[in-house]
Design a protein around this nucleic acid. Structure first.
Length: 652
RNA sequence: GCCGAGGUAGCCUAGCUGGUUGGGGCGCCUGACUCAUAAUCAGGAGGUCGGGGGUUCGAAUCCCCCCCUCGGCACCA
């Protein structure tokens, strides 16, 4: 038995194209496996725990559960609409999942892989509680930037372990937190180093995931703090703590398997306690958890281990790095579904643009081209011209298929099966499209429109061969284009949902036809323009929505300074150390402009500088201000006053 | 800076255990055809295989150096 899982979407935001990049290929893979007669279970669910959900729920004035309800439902709807059909789509805040998690945690405790340790944690005296993760705001111990409890999100991006953050403040009431000792629990990840090294050698999947994980294991493993001070989450045994969300989230794979098995009358133990083949589909961002923490936990608690981890590459939007805040995003509901576009188009784009491991660029222009030129002109046109021609002339065709055609179908089938084994879904979809091209060529060369006038028998033979190709296309194409192929199946009398891949190689006595209709609607230029405009508006506009009042602005002491000295900071790629004359004094400022400017070229330049910025240390160098610069795709471009002005002049 | 993955025609790619003129798809140009959603079919143009060295009778393919892109880590005040 095989189990396929997808990384759990975090129930804290809506579905975007980045999510689909994992779920659609996984679904296609599952549909193909089923056609190959494999016994497959496919599960996923909402990741409901963790502090962001608690914080966001509080801000929205609702309970965490209510917040999760919203997004859980959202994702279920999205998946249904896109024909991503999980056998079970659960959520981690349900009782059954808590039970499964606790069983596993207890097992790890019993086996001695968990130990308590006192650590100093931020505690809010006013709210009378410890402040986990994003309840804390403070200073990053590494870069001095304002950070939240678990991650220095504004600054260096480092992951912070509980207790590491400095000058902590409670995010809820704003009062200064004190540090108090508290007992927390750690998982002995370090004991699994050797196991992991061996395991990662055998683990299958995409190279992008495996290499990445091997790198981590080679470098350094630290024991892992697995408890948090929260009410929302899975209770840690005998303590007033909750297990860390990244402990319980992957256990969702097990608890959702149990639920799926209940429904399907199958045995979950044969998968998780014996030798079922477990395959995880994930995004590249969570390789660490799936290739390191997760197998170590499973090993420690005597569970079966994943056989493969398949990681999808990044998604770009219109050639730019995916970014929700910058507007380079495609929301599934708001952008795609609302536009009334056929969901099969998106499935095809995602599977066929490039190899699963590589970066996928989503662009509406390319989308239009792929749909109109490939799906419609090649595939749709072939199916329709055959069906329409055949139906117009006879309604029922006696089947007598050309050997050459059968061989071609067989060849394409083999290619599809082979590429699936390598997680090369594009290759599979290319093979499928190649069959449609073959069909067009066959039809064109055989000229049935001429044959029908002089040799009806021969014409029928040609049509029968073409119909067999259509049938094969319906079957091979179903995993990729389920909606369309179900409809096409009805025309030729195939129940494609229950077909096997080898049915494409079986020839019926006759095929009776229903009235055909065109498989796909074109994507019009106007539609694409509209969608592009919408995206451009978002890219330009979104950041301007936040309003700042004049008082806030006047707090900033902005002046013109003159760069009097500039030098590189050793071992730094982006930073320059500048000395800037601001009239009454000379300030030392560290600026991240080394990629755009040579130090020599800067001396003497007048630049805007924020003078009253809190000083910070970068790479050990003190910085007492900030040079303002234009950000063009991450590159810094300096600004200068339009004419000479005295140093220290105020900017308003 | 370190580590990993890459850089093949406008775009997506095959080839990478070295060997006849580097394949395919989309787009582009020309012609043919009309069953078909101006779809299809044939032909064609287009590549210093990131750059430079080297090994070899022979390199996209092996070795060295460099450049660029992406991701991770390390400083992007």
């Amino acid at each position: 038995m095989k189990l396929i899982t997808c990384g759990l979407p975090y129930a804290n935001g809506k579905a975007h194209i980045g999510h689909l990049r994992t779920y659609i290929p996984a679904d296609i893979y599952v549909k193909y496996l089923r056609m190959l007669g494999e016994d497959v279970i496919f599960v996923c669910g909402s990741d409901s725990h963790g502090t962001p959900i608690v914080v966001n729920a509080e801000q929205a004035n609702m309970t965490p559960k209510q917040l999760v309800d919203i997004y859980h439902k959202h994702f279920q709807e999205i998946f249904e609409k896109l024909d991503i059909n999980f056998d079970y789509y659960g959520r981690t805040d349900e009782e059954y999942h808590h039970q499964t998690t606790q069983e596993m945690v207890k097992k790890l405790i019993e086996k001695g892989y968990v130990y308590p340790k006192e650590i100093e944690l931020a505690y809010c005296p006013k709210c009378e509680r410890f402040l986990p993760d994003r309840y804390v705001e403070g200073t990053c111990p590494y870069c001095g930037e304002i950070a939240r409890g678990d991650e220095c999100d504004q600054g260096c991006g480092r992951h912070l372990e509980p207790g590491e953050i400095l000058n902590a403040k409670c995010k809820i009431c704003g009062s200064k937190a004190v540090y108090k000792k508290q007992k927390h629990y750690f998982f002995k990840l370090t004991e699994f180093k050797e196991f992991l090294e061996g395991y990662l050698d055998k683990l299958k999947g995409t190279e992008n995931a495996l290499n990445y994980a091997r790198q981590w294991v080679k470098a350094e493993l630290k024991d892992w703090c697995i408890t948090r001070n929260l009410e929302w989450g899975v209770k840690f045994p005998n303590e007033d703590l909750v297990v860390y969300v990244w402990v319980d989230a992957p256990i969702g794979y097990i608890s959702f398997t149990k639920k799926a098995c209940e429904k399907l009358k199958k045995d979950w133990k044969s998968i998780w306690l014996k030798d079922g083949e477990i395959i995880h589909f994930i995004g590249l961002d969570i390789v660490y958890h799936h290739c390191i923490f997760w197998p170590a936990m499973l090993k420690g608690a005597d569970y079966n281990l994943p056989k493969a981890v398949v990681a999808s590459g990044m998604v770009k939007v219109e050639g730019k790095t995916f970014s929700k805040s910058r507007g380079y995003v495609v929301w599934v509901e708001e952008d795609y579904l609302k536009a009334g576009l056929n969901t099969d188009y998106l499935r095809y784009y995602i599977i066929n643009y490039t190899s699963h491991q590589k970066d996928l660029n989503f662009s509406w222009e390319i989308f239009k081209d792929k749909v109109n030129n490939e799906l419609i002109a090649t595939l749709g046109n072939f199916m329709y011209r055959v069906l329409h021609f055949a139906w117009k002339n006879s309604k029922e065709i006696k089947m007598d298929v050309d050997e050459e055609v059968m061989e071609k179908i067989k060849e394409v089938k083999d290619k599809i099966v082979e590429s699936l084994n390598d997680w090369e879904f594009k290759v599979a979809s290319d093979a499928f499209m190649e069959l449609a091209s073959f069909g067009n060529l066959y039809f064109q060369n055989a000229k049935p429109w001429e044959l029908i006038k002089k040799d009806k028998e021969k014409c029928e033979k040609v049509l029968s061969s073409c119909l067999q190709l259509v049938k094969a296309l319906i079957i091979f194409g179903y995993p990729i284009l389920p909606k369309t192929m179900v409809e096409m199946g009805k025309i030729v009398g195939i129940d494609v949902k229950n077909s096997k891949i080898d049915d494409a190689l079986k020839v019926d006595e006759t095929i009776a036809l229903n009235k055909p209709k065109v498989p796909f609607e074109k994507v019009e230029d106007e539609k694409v323009e509209e969608l592009e405009k919408k995206m451009m508006r978002r890219i330009r506009g979104e950041k301007m929505e936040e309003v700042v009042d004049i008082e806030e602005f006047t707090k900033l002491d902005l002046r013109i300074g003159k760069i009097v000295k500039a030098e590189k900071i050793k071992k730094s790629k982006k930073l320059l150390k500048l000395e800037v004359d601001i009239g009454n004094e000379v300030r030392q400022v560290v600026a991240g402009i080394a990629e755009s400017y040579e130090p020599e070229s800067l001396v003497g330049k007048l630049v805007p500088i924020l003078v009253n910025l809190k000083p910070a240390k970068l790479m050990g160098v003190e910085s007492q201000g900030m040079i303002l610069a234009v950000d063009v795709d991450g590159k810094a471009i300096l600004m200068h006053p339009e004419r000479d002005v005295p140093v220290g002049s105020k900017i308003r």
